[in-house]
Design a protein around this nucleic acid. Structure first.
Ligand SMILES: [Mn+2]
Ligand SMILES: [Mn+2]
Ligand SMILES: [Zn+2]
Ligand SMILES: [Zn+2]
Lengths: 136, 136
DNA sequence: ATAAGAATGCAATACCATTGCAGTCCTGCT
DNA sequence: AGCAGGACTGCAATGGTATTGCATTCTTAT
């Protein structure tokens, strides 16, 4: 089917099955991060567990990153090209308390700060909440 | 019983029941944030739901803040004196991937950053993960 | 002492995440 | 092409946490 989509999976060592191509396509259309439920209702046809495992695979292979926005359900968004999900690749996330959407803000890196002595950093997550531009 | 504990509840408009005094006392003893499960096993006697509602009340009245450390269970820690849980009162949290404890770092405020135009900020949460000083 | 309101204990429910297993699809090899 | 092994999928089942309903008990003010 779509050569570009297939390529994106292959370079991340993910075998391009029909389901995965559909999920990747769906993720590319999103302006905000999606939950498993969002995906499930996007394709009436697909099985919830398969979607779950697809997202898990995508995450393990570095295609998407997971976002815990405090709403109870994990959300996912495509990584930027070249992202390795290392602390220096990470960006701020914003959850709108009105429309409940969660956005990646890839332009806004996480500002540096000093940890106490002998603490070593492996991951970092900065979640901001408030009202998004479309909602005010 | 303990006048000081009672006072801490009263100034936050929380009626000082036996259970609440015990929970507050237990929270003060903690070096790291506690989950509902942690509390539950701390007092063999107490009912899980009562503990749940106690923590919820404490949070609503500004005695504790909740911490989503991504482990699935919400954790709670006492607020600093004078804390109003406003964005400027907030601090960084650190979760140790080895001992699984989650620490408040009240000395480390959340660094400022610029949101996109017309986004307004209401809450903010910076969660760092790695290895704590005791574990290395 | 009494009545109203608050807090508690137990049961039930609602979600979301995760795993087990059997059937199906794919891929590489002969 | 035929076959074997591994990967992927679909459905059922399970585990864990959060949340609510309701009846009972406790606390406080009149
Ligand atoms: Mn993101
Ligand atoms: Mn804290
Ligand atoms: Zn919004
Ligand atoms: Zn540790």
């Amino acid at each position: 089917m779509n050569e570009a989509l297939e390529h994106k999976l292959k370079i991340r060592q993910v075998r391009p099955t029909a389901m995965r191509l559909l999920v990747l396509e769906a993720l590319e259309k999103q302006a905000s991060a999606v939950s498993l439920q969002d995906l499930e209702s996007a394709f009436e046809k697909a099985d919830r567990i398969t979607l779950y495992r697809t997202l898990k695979t995508f995450q393990e292979k570095g295609l998407v990153h997971r976002i815990e926005d405090g709403t109870g359900a994990t959300k996912y968004a495509l990584c930027e090209v070249g992202c390795e999900c290392a602390p220096e690749d990470l960006h701020v996330h914003f959850h709108c308390n009105n429309c409940q959407q969660t956005f990646c803000l890839p332009k806004i890196g996480i500002p540096a700060f000093q940890l106490p002595n002998n603490f070593s950093l492996q991951e970092i997550n900065l979640m901001a909440k408030g009202i998004c531009a479309a909602c005010r």
